[in-house]
Design a protein around this nucleic acid. Structure first.
Lengths: 130, 130
DNA sequence: ACCGTTGTATTAGCTGAATAATACAATGGG
DNA sequence: CCCATTGTATTATTCAGCTAATACAACGGT
């Protein structure tokens, strides 16, 4: 698991969360796969174990991974799905933000939808590239 | 212009930026419209003028507003459009993030596109509600 | 020409977040 | 049964970002 940490202002723990989340959601990491140990990854990244632990804790809170003492951390089963209303409530602010940004860049709704479709296909495809 | 500031961790200046940007992009504010003066808005919000000034500066950097000394701040003409490649480059990270979040909530691409269309229509509609 | 109003600049304080140092606790495999 | 390895907890330090206080500068209307 070679993660790529950059010093662009995004917290290290957040970069770890983002990248692992991305790999799980794109299918590069499958249910049951083992993540690097906290200490192991911390050493790789030349970072304090607490920093990795924090990232893993967030992933656990999101239900994406499961920690087992003395064994390691693993990609979890898909978390229990919330109600549709709840899921929409959570997504809507992000939709709005994207729409505003898209408009500001001069894209029409159609443009946006097209780009989104293409991007989704691209993300799905990366699964095979390993 | 009644803005709504909440103390939920998002910086005040950022909330100002977001809300004004939203109003411009949704058509609630039209080109040439005058924004509140820095001092005026600062007083409304019980906030230091510098905080509002910072928000306005960011909006100016994005090309959304134009400041005129001794006169005020106004919604600017639509900024010069960048190249398509550049605009896509800027949007792509946001697309990816939304796709990941959407997947994590259990939505399919189709779901996501549907929700996006609806939301866009909603945002466009708010223009008339004033 | 003035002066009130507009935006601007400088400095400083403070809070909170991020990370690290270090020590603790649990448990499965040899 | 024990101990190496796993994750956990506590505490401290540093640093950046946000906001405020205050003073400055420009300019248009009267």
């Amino acid at each position: 698991m070679q993660l790529h940490i950059s010093s662009d202002g995004v917290p290290i723990y957040q970069q770890i969360v983002d990248q692992i989340q991305y790999r799980i959601m794109s299918g590069q990491l499958a249910v049951g796969d083992e993540l690097p140990t906290i200490r192991g990854l911390a050493e790789d990244l030349r970072v304090n174990p607490n920093t990795v632990a924090r990232a893993y804790r967030e992933l656990e809170n999101e239900g994406l991974v499961e920690k087992r003492r003395t064994t390691g951390t693993f990609v979890a089963e898909l978390p229990a799905t919330r109600s549709l209303a709840e899921r929409r409530r959570l997504l809507t602010p992000h939709l709005d933000k994207l729409i505003i940004q898209s408009r500001q860049l001069g894209f029409s709704v159609g443009d946006l939808l097209d780009l989104l479709r293409k991007r989704d296909a691209q993300i799905t495809k990366t699964k095979r590239l390993r």
